[in-house]
Amino acid sequence: MPPAKPLPLNFSVVDKKHWPLWEIFIRSRQGLSHRHVGSLHAADAEMAVENARDVYTRRQEGASIWVVPADSITASSPDERDLLFDPANDKVYRHPTFYDLPDEVKHM
C-alpha cells in the first residue's frame, strides 16, 4: 500500500501521563531469533520484562525476552518501500534456483 499521510484522528488526545509503550520480542526457544509478538505498557524496562513474561509467555512460549521502548524504534517509511525493496526484484542471481545444474548433481 502507498504510505499514510499523517491523519488527524477524531479522538481526544488528553495531555496526561501514560506508562510508555514497549514493543516485545520473544525468542520462543534456543536457536531461533527473537520475534515481535506485540506490545504492552510499563513504567520501566524491568516492569516491561516482567509484564511481557506474564502476558506473552503464559504457555511456555518463551526462552528470552527483549523489550524496546516503542518510540526508540526507527522504521523504514512505507513510502520508501519501492525505493528500498524493489531493487532486489531483479537480482534473481541471489537465489539458488537461478542456477541450472545437470540432473546428475543431486544435492547442492
Binding site: 505498557h41 509484564n51 506474564d54
Partner: peptide, 11 residues
C-alpha cells in the same frame, strides 16, 4: 490497577 498487573497477580 492496570491490566498487566492484573495478569501478574493472577499468575
Amino acid at each position: 490497577p492496570v491490566l498487566e498487573e492484573d495478569i501478574a497477580l493472577t499468575n
